[in-house]
């Protein structure tokens, strides 16, 4: 309250000097991003309208993307895979997040460390772990064969299943964090109040905690979706040739077919998918803000 009314400090001349200095100090960042981000992005967008042979302007690349079947299938595979990952992350992350948000015991620190530890390990290590586990001669098949439950190895890798498992594992810590923050924001007295009114544990979760943590669920789904859709290493290793997504298809276009224009179109389609999802998230969030602000105003 007391420092509400503070403006720039005098004297004017010194301000002007620091303003000058600030722009100078800011310029390296602006220039680096202009050269290695803004300019390349512009070139890529321009390239998407160029003929692969002659580089003359054309819409053929977009036409091919929409009609060759393979590309759109890859686009849909990416979307479906990302959606599945988002659902799995949120479903698996919820109990952990609830525990982390509400527990006051020593176990909280242990669970917290366990839940976030994979983040330190890097994507390759984790993906390698899943390869060992899911491979035809891997851990799970080995156990099942040994127990005589199956006669021949189950196809657990190089498919949608393997990629979803691997990506869920990669994204899970982020989902848990965002769900945890949201659940922590719910007043525990609401749960006690519901219990005092006769609600069972299950009803408390069903009617109090779940509805109030919807924003956290939405943000966990969004994070998971965007991370999954843009992941490269996990689908490359666990999906391989058997399950191609946009990221791996873009890589192929660049390094095997050396088709820059078509790679650009695919990259743009991935970017559009991401931006659409983020935009939906922003819209949801601002609407929710408006609603809650309105509800407060009514009181």
């Amino acid at each position: 309250m007391s420092s509400l009314a503070l403006d720039s400090s005098p004297p004017r001349t010194r301000r002007r000097f620091t303003g000058w200095f600030s722009y100078l100090a800011l310029s390296p960042s602006l220039v680096v991003l202009a050269i290695f981000f803004a300019l390349p992005m512009g070139i890529m967008i321009g390239m998407s309208f160029a003929d692969p042979q002659t580089l003359s302007p054309t819409l053929d690349n977009y036409h091919r993307f929409l009609t060759d079947g393979l590309s759109l299938a890859g686009f849909c595979r990416t979307a479906i895979m990302s959606l599945l990952v988002a659902v799995c992350v949120t479903a698996l992350g919820y109990p952990v997040a609830y525990f982390l948000a509400r527990s006051r015991t020593r176990w909280r620190a242990v669970v917290f460390a366990l839940a976030l530890s994979p983040e330190l390990a890097g994507v390759v290590l984790r993906t390698y772990g899943w390869l060992i586990i899911l491979e035809d001669r891997g851990f799970i098949n080995d156990v099942l064969l040994y127990l005589g439950l199956i006669a021949s190895p189950l196809p657990l890798s190089k498919n949608l299943f393997a990629v979803v498992v691997g990506l869920t594992h990669v994204v899970l810590p982020f989902g848990i964090l965002s769900l945890m923050t949201s659940i922590q924001g719910i007043d525990p007295n609401l749960e006690r109040a519901a219990q005092m009114l006769g609600a069972s544990r299950l009803s408390v979760i069903r009617f109090i905690v779940l509805p109030l943590s919807v924003p956290g669920i939405v943000s966990s789904m969004l994070i998971a979706f965007t991370m999954a859709a843009s992941a490269y290493a996990t689908p490359a290793l666990l999906g391989g040739a058997g399950f191609k997504v946009l990221a791996t298809m873009i890589y192929e276009q660049v390094l095997f077919y050396i088709n820059w224009p078509f790679a650009s179109v695919m990259a743009i389609s991935l970017l559009v998918m991401m931006l659409a999802i983020s935009f939906a998230g922003v819209r949801y969030e601002s609407r929710r803000r408006l609603r809650t602000a309105g509800a407060k105003g009514d009181n």
Binding site: M1, S2, S3, L4, A5, L6, D7, S9, P10
Partner: peptide, 12 residues
């Protein structure tokens, strides 16, 4: 507080 800040020099 604004008066105080002017005496201190944070506000002109």
């Amino acid at each position: 507080t604004t008066t105080l800040n002017m005496i201190a020099g944070f506000n002109a």
